[in-house]
């Protein structure tokens, strides 16, 4: 049976009580464990019978993981290899000095600070 047929198996005896559309709509609630027990059971029964929805769920989870993995070392330029050996981005010294100067000016304007 192809995955398409499998997904449509409701016509052939594997009746889905929730549709693929509902799986997509309630994915966030499922992952956040906000579905009540009967709904969660139905959701998981659908997943057992529907590989395309499992692939969708896996891709959704992978998207979250990929976003985190790709932004953790944020602002890292695109460059080859030696990821672990790349020095951390230096703090912007010009900005630090600008902040310190602005704070001195602010303190002079209001000595109570």
């Amino acid at each position: 049976m192809s995955e398409e047929d499998h997904c449509r198996a409701g016509r052939h005896g594997h009746r889905h009580d929730i549709s693929c559309r509902e799986v997509s709509e309630f994915l966030l609630a499922y992952l956040d464990r906000e579905l009540d027990e009967p709904a969660r059971t139905e959701f998981e029964r659908h997943l057992q019978l529907c590989p395309p929805c499992v692939h969708y769920l896996d891709g959704y989870r992978d998207t979250i993981a990929l976003v985190r993995a790709c932004t953790r070392a944020d602002a890292a330029p695109a460059e080859p290899s030696c990821e672990s050996q790349r020095p951390k981005k230096a703090p912007p010294e010009g900005l630090i000095q600008a902040i310190l100067s602005a704070k001195c000016r602010a303190a002079k304007r209001d000595p109570s600070e």
Partner: peptide, 21 residues
């Protein structure tokens, strides 16, 4: 309620993807 496009598994892992700058 059936999808117009049947989803396929991804052929690369997160680890493989995230190691490429």
């Amino acid at each position: 309620g059936y999808p117009e496009h049947f989803h396929q598994p991804w052929v690369q892992t997160i680890e493989e993807l995230a190691t490429r700058a």
